[in-house]
Design a protein around this nucleic acid. Structure first.
Length: 266
DNA sequence: ATGGTAGCGAAGCTA
């Protein structure tokens, strides 16, 4: 089974890229972030013609999350995101940041869009830390109930866990994504039992998943590693390979994030 | 400190 996560920065603007990506890599389940569309705004005909469906989509906040899956492969359990445990953002749209589904074989996959945090002194930064703590608690709860649970936490974490995950630490001094509280919150999720299943095969420095549109960051190779696939022990032991599809950041109409792809064999 | 780019939706906000 091949799963992927991709901050798409508007699903409508990039539906053609999504379709080509799914087919080129034969992806089974794709978690999307920043869909920036209401479900009813999407033209799903091309997806369905290719054998895919939107298994789930965050309801109506711009920065929505979604799961695209081969038809019939993913059963969305609305209780899975455990939304009540997640803090609400100022719009009250909790479900638009975390959405989970059960894929055939019992894999639970969550598409996560961690709050950006904006500035360190902005209330959104504290919200980001609370949100990550809620994620940790929910993940820990799932593994306490079943240590062998197949759970993948995937998405845009908006945290660069290591210094080598940004192109220049000096640039990020005083900025979000690299602060110790954010990194500690990320590590807490890992320590709850969800390990990065990509980094081992694709160590840094210089291995990134995001490059700002501005200032020629991509051609200058000035990026950040902030998109992750974190797997429970059962998922980690099922990983047979992974890659970051840097090609998707190239060309006209690219998202500012590249997809992260992981192969699993249970 | 500013502005640079992109998306949405029709001005300004978010990233």
């Amino acid at each position: 089974m091949r799963i992927a996560t991709w901050n798409i920065n508007s699903l409508r603007a990039r539906m053609d890229r999504v379709l080509a990506f799914l087919e080129r890599h034969e992806v089974d389940v794709l978690a999307l972030q920043e869909t920036k569309a209401k479900p009813e705004q999407l033209d799903l005909a091309p997806l369905e013609a290719a054998g895919y469906e939107v298994a789930a989509h965050g309801l109506n906040q711009w920065n929505g999350v979604a799961l695209i899956s081969r038809v019939g492969l993913t059963d969305v359990r609305t209780e899975l995101p455990a939304a009540p445990t997640f803090p609400e953002d100022e719009t009250g749209m909790v479900e638009a940041r975390a959405l989970g589904g059960v894929v055939a074989g019992g894999l639970r996959i969550w598409s996560l869009y961690v709050p950006n945090g904006r500035e360190i002194d902005h209330p959104h930064y504290a919200y980001k830390l609370r949100w990550l703590e809620a994620l940790r608690a929910e993940g820990a709860r799932e593994l306490a109930a079943d240590p062998d649970a197949r759970v993948a936490l995937v998405g845009d974490f908006n945290v660069a866990p290591l210094d080598e995950d940004v192109w220049d630490m000096e640039f990020f001094e005083g900025k979000t994504h690299v602060t110790e509280p954010e990194r500690a919150a990320f590590r807490s999720v890992v320590e709850a039992g969800f390990s990065d299943v990509v980094r081992g095969d694709h160590p840094g420095p210089g291995v990134f998943t995001y490059w700002d549109y501005q200032k020629l960051r991509f051609p200058k190779r000035e990026g950040m590693r902030i998109d992750f696939v974190l797997g429970s022990p059962a998922v980690e032991s099922a990983v047979t390979g992974s890659f970051i599809d840097r090609e998707e950041r190239k060309g006209k109409g690219a998202s500012d994030h590249a997809p992260v792809v992981v192969d699993l064999s249970f």
